[in-house]
Design a protein around this nucleic acid. Structure first.
Length: 106
DNA sequence: GGCCTGACTTTAG
DNA sequence: GCTAAAGCCAGGC
């Protein structure tokens, strides 16, 4: 299992109405400091429809990137549609932050 | 295999 | 609260 596959698998496990951070995914994938790489993987994700990359936000809840349709705006709209709460222009992590399982069978 | 880039994160000013 | 700089990692050329 490559780091990339790990990130995609974990991202697909993010429940509807919740969000995770790049650093969080990196940590779960085994590379606590690979948040930047995670962002790159999302940007070049070969399986966009299968990977809910719109549920991945920055550490403070800011919506960054998103190469999909609608850009940041579309990303925000999808999150709102899934029940993710927002605080101004950022995600309310206090209420919508995903609490991951202990292990993914790595 | 080496260099450049970037959807990150943290610390300092 | 905002801007700048440094550290880290994988992908693409």
């Amino acid at each position: 299992m490559t780091f990339r596959a790990q990130v995609y698998e974990i991202t697909k496990k993010i429940p509807r109405g919740k969000v995770a951070t790049y650093g969080q995914l990196a940590k779960l994938a085994g590379k606590p400091k690979a948040a930047r790489a995670v962002g790159s993987l999302m940007r070049t994700n070969p399986n966009a429809p299968r990977t809910p990359c719109h549920r991945v936000v920055a550490r403070d809840g800011s919506l960054t990137g998103y190469s999909g349709k609608g850009g940041i705006t579309g990303k925000k709209s999808m999150l709102l549609n899934e029940g993710v709460l927002f605080k101004k222009n950022k995600v309310n992590l206090k209420l919508s932050h995903w609490l991951p399982k202990k292990s993914f069978g790595i």
